[in-house]
Each structure stands twice: as C-alpha cells, then as structure tokens.
Amino acid sequence: MYDQLVEAWNKMLAKLESWLDAVIVNLPNLIIAIVVFIIALIASKYVSKLVLKLLDRSNLQRSMKKVIAKLVSIVVILLGLFLILGILNLGKALNTILAGAGVAGLAVGLALQGALANTYSGIILSYIKNLKYGDWIETNDYEGEVIDIDLRAVTIKQVDNNLVYIPNKLVVENPIKNYSTTSQSRVILECGVGYESDLRMVKKLTVDTVVNHFKAVEKKDDVLFLWKGFGDSSINYELRFWINSTSALEVAKAKSETMMLIKDVYDKNDINIPFPIRTLDFPKEFNFANNSGES
C-alpha cells in the first residue's frame, strides 16, 4: 500500500513538473495574450466612440447609433479573443468551441427568450422614426418624455420626474401615443353653466377669452365650442382649441390656465358654474314645526 502511494505521488509530481515546464515554455505567449486582451478592451471603447462620432453625421436615430457602436465594440473584443486563441496555440479548442456553439446557442436562446425578444424589439424601435429621444409619449398606461432607448428597455421621465423603464417588447406590441409627432396639441375642456345663463353670451365670452390669451389661436373660428347637453344641475359644453406645443405637460398647463381665465370672466359677468344640487319636494300638509318637535 505504501509503495502504491509513493508511486502515485511521484506520478503527480512528474505531471506537475510537465505542466510547469509547459507554462514556462508558453509564458511569453501567455504574457502576449494578456496584453492583446487588454488592448482589445481598450480598442473596443475607442472604436465605439469613433463609430459614434462618424454616425453623428448621418440621419440615423441616436438609439440606433448606440446599438451600432455597441455591436462594433463586441466585434472588436471577439476578434481579440480569436487572436488570443491563436497565440496560445489553442486552434483545436477553437474548433471544439465552434462545433458546440450551435447547441449552446440553442440552449441559451431558449433560456433567454425574454431578453432576446427585448433586444430584437430594441433594434426595431431604433429604426422607428416616429419614436425618438425627447418625444412625449403614452404607452402601457405610462406617460412621459423618452430619455433613453437601449437594447433592453425604453426609459421615460414622467411629470413627477420619476423614471419608468418599459421593456422594449411591450412597447413594440402595444399602441404608442406620441404627442410630439405634430407641432400642435389640442386642449379639450368640459364645463357647465347654470340654467339661468344666457347661452349665447356664455359662448361669446368663453371664445373671446381663449382667442385673447393664446397666441396660437388667431381667430374665433379656431375655437370649437359645443353645447353637449342638459345636465342634472347645469347646461354642459365642451371647448376645444390648439396650442403650439407637443408636450402633454404643456397641454395640462394650458387647460389649467383656461379654467382660471374662464372662472374670472364668469365671475365678472355673474355667470354661475353650478355644483350638483338636490331639490326636496315636501307635501303641502307637511308641518315642519310638528316634525321638529317630535324629534
């Protein structure tokens, strides 16, 4: 038993010595491989920046430029890895890696279906001209300004300054409302006045107020004023007009400003904006004094 242990120990030492000899022999190649790897990492960053500068002269969207720059950076690193395998005389290992790449790629694809779907959707979004940085959009029940589009998600900044990261797949598969597509946005305001009001006077005062305050509204015909119906406590109308803005936030501000202006004008002209009221009809024989005494 002792002799067997000694023999095994000697074989292990011999094997370690052979490995050490191989390391010493290949040490220059190993050092060169490390240097090449570091150079490849540094070169990938500089090449990515250079590609971005060159693409800035093109009409591609910013998101697409970033995608192309990242892909070029990855290609530079892969070329460096192939060069390292050649320096270390690992050609056979390279053939083995390439042979197993198909099976490994299939397994990785099945495991990363969601991530790959977001990546593919990110590339699609980068080609869409109607969705770009700075646009104010509404999608998947979220609304805000687009501040980033990468291979994973679309980042929007909401009115409250919070960031929302929406997976690219959801943005591609669901409707997108882009407020920045046109140069103007419509303000829609609903209100109501009391039944005792002069409806023609109400319409004139409301339209004049909008025309006099908003520069984008040049004439009265640009304002759409529609009576909608007789409500429980008021006669309701809808007011529509355009403003020079592509931001939903600016639309909300214009709507708020319009509400204040209309309220001031109505107060000066004794026009009532009623709140819901309830009228109680009591029988003629109903005696308030007797009922209050009983209570």
Rank of each mutant, 00 (worst) to 15 (best):
40 A>V: 08
231 G>P: 04
81 L>Q: 14
259 M>I: 11
175 P>T: 11
6 V>K: 11
255 K>V: 06
49 K>C: 07
217 V>E: 03
133 Y>I: 14
160 D>I: 03
244 N>Y: 01
16 L>H: 11
102 G>Q: 03
163 L>S: 11
98 L>N: 02
36 V>A: 15
160 D>E: 02
223 V>P: 12
32 I>Y: 10
139 T>R: 00
227 W>T: 02
69 A>P: 09
214 F>I: 02
132 K>V: 05
187 V>E: 07
69 A>L: 06
262 I>P: 03
110 L>H: 08
224 L>V: 04
144 G>C: 08
81 L>W: 12
198 D>F: 04
260 M>A: 09
92 K>L: 11
134 G>K: 11
77 I>V: 15
247 S>K: 12
233 S>G: 02
199 L>P: 01
286 F>G: 00
207 V>M: 10
196 E>G: 12
30 L>D: 11
100 G>F: 15
240 R>G: 09
32 I>N: 01
156 I>N: 04
180 S>L: 04
242 W>V: 00
179 Y>R: 11
234 S>Q: 14
132 K>W: 01
14 A>C: 03
179 Y>K: 08
287 N>D: 15
214 F>A: 08
277 I>G: 09
259 M>K: 12
289 A>V: 10
111 A>R: 15
278 R>G: 00
45 K>A: 06
217 V>T: 05
259 M>P: 01
218 E>P: 01
137 I>Y: 01
277 I>A: 08
278 R>N: 01
207 V>L: 01
176 I>Y: 13
15 K>L: 14
293 G>V: 06
90 L>D: 08
252 A>H: 10
165 Y>C: 07
235 I>L: 09
84 I>W: 06
260 M>V: 14
22 A>V: 05
137 I>W: 03
174 N>V: 02
281 D>I: 13
294 E>Y: 05
84 I>L: 12
130 N>S: 12
267 D>Y: 07
189 L>H: 14
24 I>Q: 05
188 I>T: 15
244 N>C: 01
237 Y>R: 04
31 I>T: 10
226 L>G: 05
25 V>L: 15
210 V>G: 04
115 A>P: 00
45 K>G: 00
67 V>F: 14
82 F>L: 15
185 S>W: 02
188 I>S: 15
154 V>I: 07
30 L>Y: 13
280 L>F: 13
91 G>H: 06
145 E>G: 00
221 D>H: 09
210 V>D: 01
264 D>Q: 07
129 K>I: 02
285 E>V: 10
225 F>E: 00
105 G>K: 00
192 G>T: 11
243 I>K: 03
227 W>M: 04
273 I>Q: 11
278 R>C: 02
95 N>D: 11
52 L>T: 14
283 P>W: 05
